[in-house]
Design a protein around this nucleic acid. Structure first.
Lengths: 223, 223
DNA sequence: CAATTAATTAAACACACGTTTAAATTGGTC
DNA sequence: GACCAATTTAAACGTGTGTTTAATTAATTG
């Protein structure tokens, strides 16, 4: 026979009931665990059992704190994702109207955002870029006015004054900018491996990206 | 009481048994249906029931023709995906050693591949770019020697001769090329919507991309 | 035309999922 | 110190999954 209930020893195989001592904010721990799973395997594939286990609790806790899987996702968006966008937007607001300064500010802003939030590229690929991604609607409705539309508008104004290459489309330039910043971070595990490019650090990536945006393949060379 | 078996009428709610007349190649229809589902909702989420239903058969047919879900995926890869890569590789082989011709050939090759295989960008995002994508290993082991590594090698040789911008890294230039070609196609549903860019067709995208690669933001302008 | 092979379905299997409910335990309040 | 609210677990529910098996029908072969 095994002792059925209430061992005074802590931590090992607890039963139901409020724990003694008050554990550190479980809600925050669930948000962190959820974000980890979202980035690693995607929102749809992230089961509540996995998230709860990662946070050291049972899946019923998700229901207790958030109500449902979808409301958990909504909380992660508001409390973890949107603040990153807000920082990027402030950076753009601070940059002037010179198109090169704007572009440089965006490129550096993405680099900084990724450095501070390593989950960002994975989450973006799976939940925004993928066709059934759970955050695509978020991008369209709430993020795009703050960053890509703002950027496109200011670039279009600069181009009208002849401040950069007239053969570019300012809207497509924003697309190109994302393809040259967020995408390389998302693909880094691949290209570092197939090119044996462990020597390429983020600074080298930054220099390459800015050089390409400045002069394309036609820049001055050391010939 | 309902008639239990063997109505002579065709098509409506068949029971078991080999169908009369011999239906057109079911294996091919299953491959097509699988690829459709893979592109639309992802390989992991594409249930055999959905694929089978899309092909007009029962899920047991997948077992009959392929053995398992994984072997179905392998067949789709060999018979639908790899041929597209082979075409792109032949294009690159046909291009000369001039780096601009190489880059133009790659850009046009991706455009052509997407035009002929509209499922390509979605599949690439979800199954290669996503961290747990089912085709990432395929890219690393079988595709990368045929396209990105080949391209990087030839670009590095051209750069050593001073044939283009020395501030670029030839390996990262391959990453940039993909970020400027496949990525815009994958993101097209997004940017066409947030920029109201229904006027931007594939030709405009092609011109923009080549202009950016040629001169960056610094090209001649109409000022 | 009988026997065999090919093609197909229906049904069942064990498993994982999100959710709900009831019970258990602790912390705070009067 | 008794009561109520807060926090947590275990267990069960129904649904969808990949797979397997048996049965059924048509085509092919001798």
């Amino acid at each position: 026979m095994q002792v059925p209930v209430s061992k005074p020893r802590a931590s090992a195989r607890r039963g139901p009931g409020r724990p003694a001592g008050g554990v550190a904010d479980q809600r925050e721990r669930l948000l962190d665990a959820a974000l980890r799973s979202y980035a690693k395997i995607g929102i749809a594939a992230a089961s509540l059992r996995r998230i709860a286990s990662d946070a050291g609790v049972t899946p019923a806790m998700v229901h207790y704190y958030f109500g449902s899987k979808e409301q958990l996702r909504a909380a992660v968006v508001e409390e973890r994702v949107m603040p990153v966008i807000a920082v990027l937007r402030e950076r753009l607001d601070a940059a002037g109207n010179d198109p090169r300064a704007l572009v440089t500010s965006f490129v550096r802003g993405v680099h900084a955002a990724v450095a501070d939030n390593p989950w960002l590229p994975s989450l973006w690929v799976r939940e925004v870029l993928s066709e059934t991604g759970a955050l695509r609607d978020l991008l369209v409705t709430r993020i795009s006015p703050q960053v890509p539309q703002l950027l496109a508008k200011r670039l279009a104004a600069a181009q009208k004054q002849g401040d950069f290459n007239a053969d570019l489309d300012p809207r497509l330039l924003v697309v190109s900018l994302i393809g040259l910043t967020l995408f390389p971070f998302a693909a880094a595990p691949i290209w570092r491996r197939i090119f044996a490019a462990a020597d390429v650090d983020n600074d080298a990536l930054l220099r390459h990206t800015l050089a390409l945006l400045d002069h394309g393949m036609g820049g001055l060379n050391a010939h």
